[in-house]
Amino acid sequence: MSATAPPPPADPRAILRGGLPDRYLTPDDIAEMFEVPIETVYQWRKKRTGPPGFRIGKHIRYDPADVRAYVTGRKSAEQGAA
């Protein structure tokens, strides 16, 4: 009986495009998805300009539905300005 290797971790950008992931996202996930430095994610949070996050103890997490709504809102704003 041969054991199969577990699938590699999925790219958060591909998961978000294909459907919402079944877990809360970390700041590192957000940085990877938007291809920005992690410092940018923290600045967005400080200035309240990026996707809304929340704290679980000392950790920041992002609800995938909120991230999707943020992206949709940004896209709508861009199309409205054109």
Rank of each mutant, 00 (worst) to 15 (best):
D29F: 03
A69I: 04
A77G: 07
D29S: 06
R55V: 00
P8F: 10
P12K: 04
R13G: 06
Y42H: 11
G80M: 12
I15R: 04
I15S: 07
T49K: 07
P64V: 03
Y42V: 00
E35A: 12
A3N: 08
E35K: 11
P51L: 06
P64F: 01
D29C: 09
R68C: 07
D22V: 06
D11I: 00
S76K: 15
L25Q: 09
T40D: 12
T4D: 10
G73N: 09
E32W: 05
L25F: 05
P7T: 04
G73Q: 06
I38W: 09
D11L: 00
A31V: 04
D63S: 08
G19Q: 13
Q79W: 11
A82F: 13
Y62G: 09
P9K: 04
P9D: 01
A31E: 01
P6C: 10
R13T: 14
G73T: 02
F54C: 05
P8G: 04
L16M: 14
A5L: 15
V36L: 12
I38M: 14
D63C: 09
R13F: 09
R17N: 10
L25G: 05
G50F: 00
P37T: 06
A3F: 09
Y62N: 06
I60C: 08
A82E: 15
P37G: 11
E78W: 13
R45E: 05
D29R: 10
T26H: 02
G50C: 09
E78A: 15
E35C: 08
D66T: 04
R68T: 05
E78M: 15
R68D: 10
D28E: 10
A31F: 01
E35S: 09
P37K: 15
F54E: 13
K46N: 05
L25V: 06
L25M: 13
G53A: 09
A65T: 07
P8L: 11
R48F: 00
P6L: 14
M33F: 01
V36I: 15
R74E: 13
A82S: 15
R17M: 13
T49A: 08
R23C: 05
P8E: 14
K75P: 03
A65D: 10
V41E: 03
A82W: 14
F54M: 11
T26M: 08
G19A: 07
Y70N: 13
G18Q: 12
D11E: 01
K46S: 05
T40M: 15
G19L: 11
R68I: 08
A5E: 14
K47F: 00
P9Q: 01
W44E: 02
G73E: 02
T26P: 06
P52I: 04
H59S: 09
R45D: 02
G18H: 10
G19N: 12
G19E: 10
D66P: 06
K75M: 15
P64H: 03
W44Y: 02
G53Y: 00
D11Q: 00
I30R: 07
D22P: 01
P9T: 03
A77H: 09
R17W: 13
E39R: 13
R61T: 00
D66Y: 00
P52A: 11
P52D: 08
L16E: 12
Q43W: 05
